[in-house]
Computed example of a mutant assay.
Amino acid sequence: MLYEHFQLLEKIGLDLVFAAIFFFIGMAIKDVLREGNVPVFGRRIVWFVLTLGCVGFIVKGVIQLVWEGVGIG
């Protein structure tokens, strides 16, 4: 295998690890909210913040791809 393939596999693996971390964080938060009898408004705020974190991660990846495609990064 060429060195470029190792870099690609490393990038894909890191993205999958981050996706798994977000998933497990979401499952833990769901469990804590359920066990703590948190009101609906509080649950919505927590999920909104978690969603913003995921969206920020995705936007960062898209920006990185665009910059690398243009030759900036």
Results as ranks from 00 to 15, higher is better:
47 W>S: 03
19 A>G: 06
44 R>S: 08
51 T>Y: 04
26 G>E: 06
67 W>P: 02
32 V>Q: 03
21 I>K: 06
28 A>I: 11
37 N>G: 12
3 Y>E: 13
15 D>H: 10
12 I>F: 14
34 R>Q: 15
68 E>P: 00
37 N>F: 05
53 G>K: 01
31 D>G: 03
6 F>D: 03
45 I>F: 11
40 V>K: 13
41 F>D: 08
58 I>P: 02
40 V>Y: 12
51 T>I: 05
47 W>M: 05
30 K>I: 06
16 L>M: 08
19 A>I: 10
71 G>T: 02
52 L>R: 00
46 V>F: 01
23 F>D: 06
24 F>Q: 06
24 F>I: 07
66 V>M: 04
8 L>W: 04
5 H>K: 07
36 G>Y: 00
69 G>D: 04
63 I>C: 14
23 F>L: 11
42 G>M: 05
56 G>I: 06
45 I>G: 04
29 I>F: 05
36 G>I: 00
65 L>A: 10
47 W>D: 02
24 F>S: 05
54 C>S: 06
28 A>P: 05
35 E>I: 11
49 V>A: 09
24 F>A: 05
70 V>E: 00
8 L>T: 12
59 V>I: 11
63 I>E: 12
23 F>Y: 15
35 E>Q: 11
36 G>E: 02
62 V>A: 10
52 L>V: 01
64 Q>G: 04
10 E>D: 11
1 M>C: 06
30 K>M: 09
56 G>K: 05
